[in-house]
Amino acid sequence: MGCMNSKSVRKFPAREDSLDLAAETAFTVNEVEALFVLFRSISNSIVNDGLLSKEEFQLAIFKNKKKDNIFANRIFDLFDVKKLGVVDFEDFVRSLNVFHPNASLKDKIAFSFRLYDLHNTGFIERPEVKEMLIALLFESDMKLADDVIETILDKTFVEADLKQDGKIDTEEWETFVKRNPSVLKIMTLPYLRDITISFPSFIFNSTNVERVDETSTRL
């Protein structure tokens, strides 16, 4: 991981970086800057390297780094676009964008599909789903009888696996999700709209150069 050493800890995103991220996401330049305040606080909570590790991600979500969670692990793996084991700020913003209320439904459906495609085969397959379900129940200290688990899996695949070939493809998943809207609720974080008032200290470091009020009297 030599590339980690080559990255210096930046105090604030450069103007060009904020502009680029704003252009390709639903976030404004100021919202990108506010996200940096958030990112800096969580990414430096364990190792002060300007990069977000899985442990730091777990700590941010659960306030307890000892907790493990297959779902949070999966989200982190999808944020870790470069597969380096850590997430940099750019990938953090691009990945978080899918949770924005204004992100497209298509992107949310695609991301949720990949959440369940544990082995990245391009399909949601019964063994993967069973693996996730058992891990989930284990983490919750819940014990379900084997036949109950199989019944739930049967029910799920009857609903979702329209082609009845034993696996769910992206097309089937889209159909399933549209019939079960609650599945996508987790894909929207409404408070991303409030990111600037939640982390207001970005205002003192903003590199935004929007020109406005050229002719107004100076305060």
Partner: peptide
């Protein structure tokens, strides 16, 4: 409506929401 995604959603929602919010 008990299926795996809804079940996953229901169990995790409080954890994820509580932690992040």
């Amino acid at each position: 409506d008990v299926n795996v995604p809804n079940l996953v959603h229901r169990i995790h929602k409080s954890v994820l929401l509580r932690g992040m919010e």
